[in-house]
Design a protein around this nucleic acid. Structure first.
Lengths: 233, 233
DNA sequence: CTGTATCCGTGTTGATACTG
DNA sequence: CAGTATCAACACGGATACAG
C-alpha cells in the first residue's frame, strides 16, 4: 500500500536557495542554476526565439530551457515579447538589468581563459565569440585605431566599431565597414586567439576577407590571451 | 548479498559539463556547481579548515563540501595543505589562480545588489562582508583618504588600509589602526549599507568603536549601494 | 576533535516522445 | 515552431557511522 503517500507536502520552501545575505550568493540564487547563465549569454547580442536558443546551446533540452526562461523572467532578467505582425513570433529579450550582467561573463571568461583545462576546439556560438571580443580587447593596443569591422556569421551580420581604445558590437547591416570577415565563430576564433594565419584559412575556404587586408592583420592582434595558470603538483 | 553490484560502471563521462568553447562556459564547468563559488568565497580571505568552512556556509552538508573541495582541488583552484606542527591541522588554501577569481564575485555582487529581491537581513559571513567592502568602495569618495581601519569579527581581526582611493584588506593584527570596529558582519553591514546610525548600534551594544570616531562616520559613507533595478510588469 | 564514507529520501536534470 | 509529458539517472541534503 505504498500509494498512501499522498501526504507529501510538496512545497515547504519550494526552491533551493542559499540563505545568505551576500549579494554574490543572491546572484547565484537568480542565475546559478545549470544553463541559466548560458541562456543569458545567448541573449546578450539581442532577442532570440525559443528554437534559436535551443540551437545555439548544444545539449540543453526543451523542458530545461522552458524552466530557465520562466525562472529568469520571474527574476526580472528577461521578458518574453511578441513581435508585431507579420512576424508575430515570440522572442525572449533581456531587460536593461539583464544586459547589465555582461561584466559577470567578462570576469568568468577572463578567469577561465587561464585554466589549464580550457579546450578552445569545442563548439563556439556566435554570441560567445562576439562577447569574447568585447572581453579580450586590449585597449592599449587599440588606442589609436578607428575602424569598422563587419562580421558575417551564418545568417546574421554584426558590426564592430573601434574607437578610442574601445569596441562596440551590435547586430547591424555592414555598409560603411572598412573590413568584412566571413566565416564560422570557431574559424574566426582560430585566427584571433589561435594564431592561425589568415592566408591559410582563406586558402582553405574557411574564411573570406573583403576590404582592408592590412586592417585585418592588425585587428586580429588586438585580443591577446592571458597566460595559463600553472597548477601545483 | 547486495555486494555483487560491483559491476556499476561509475564513469562513462564522469562529469556533467557544457560542450562549449566559450571561456565563461568553461568557468561554469569548473566552479558552476552548487556551493562551489561560495566555498571559494570563504577561502578568499585566507586558508580555512573543513569545519570553519562548514560553519560559515549555512546549509552545506559534509559530503557535498568534501566533493566540492575535491573538485576544486582537481581543477587547480585550491590545494590542501598541512600546517607545520604543533598545529598539524589540515587547511584548504586557494592557489594564486584561485585568488584571481575575485573579480567574479565583484561582478556577481555588483549586479545582484541591484536585484529587487535581494534580502540583506539573512546571515552574513565574515568573508562576504570583507569582500563586499572591496567590491563596493567608491574610489572617488575615498580618493583623499589615508587610514587604517581595524575589524574585530568574532575570533578574527582584519586590517583595512585605505590609500589613493583603494582599499586593501587582510587578516592581520590591529596595531597602528586609526579606528577599530567590533561587531558582527550583519551589524557592520547595517551601519555601512543599511544606513543605521552608529550611535544607536553602539547604545544597543551591538557595535564598539575605538579610536577616531569622525573617521568612522566618514568610513561608513564610502560604500554606496547601486539603485535597485526596476523590473517590468 | 577533524574530517570521510555510506545510505537514503527527495528534487533536479536530461532524453525521448508527443501535442497545440 | 513552441513548448508539455513522461521517465530514468543523477545530484543534493540529512543522518549516521567510521577513521586518524
Amino acid at each position: 500500500m505504498k500509494l498512501e503517500k499522498i501526504t507529501q507536502l510538496p512545497n515547504t520552501r519550494s526552491k533551493r536557495h542559499y540563505e545568505d545575505a551576500c549579494a554574490a550568493a543572491h546572484a547565484l540564487d537568480l542565475v546559478g542554476e545549470r544553463w541559466a547563465l548560458l541562456v543569458i549569454r545567448e541573449l546578450m547580442m539581442g532577442p532570440k526565439r525559443f528554437s534559436d536558443l535551443r540551437e545555439s546551446l548544444p545539449g540543453i533540452s526543451a523542458n530545461v530551457l522552458t524552466q530557465r526562461l520562466e525562472g529568469l523572467e520571474a527574476a526580472g532578467v528577461l521578458v518574453r515579447r511578441k513581435l508585431p505582425p507579420p512576424a508575430s513570433t515570440q522572442v525572449y529579450e533581456l531587460t536593461e538589468w539583464g544586459y547589465e550582467s555582461e561584466p559577470i561573463f567578462q570576469a568568468l571568461g577572463r578567469w577561465a581563459a587561464r585554466s589549464p583545462r580550457h579546450d578552445p576546439t569545442l563548439p563556439f556560438s556566435t554570441a560567445s565569440f562576439l562577447l569574447s571580443l568585447r572581453t579580450m580587447l586590449d585597449s592599449k593596443r587599440a588606442e589609436g585605431l578607428e575602424a569598422r569591422v563587419g562580421f558575417r556569421l551564418g545568417e546574421e551580420t554584426f558590426l564592430a566599431q573601434l574607437a578610442g581604445g574601445r569596441i562596440e558590437i551590435s547586430r547591424s547591416a555592414l555598409q560603411g565597414a572598412d573590413l568584412i570577415l566571413t566565416g564560422t565563430p570557431p574559424v574566426l576564433a582560430g585566427a584571433i586567439y589561435g594564431g592561425q594565419p589568415l592566408e591559410a584559412l582563406e586558402k582553405a575556404g574557411a574564411l573570406q576577407i573583403e576590404g582592408d587586408r592590412a586592417l585585418a592583420r592588425h585587428f586580429i592582434g588586438l585580443f591577446p590571451l592571458p597566460p595559463k595558470a600553472s597548477i601545483p603538483a
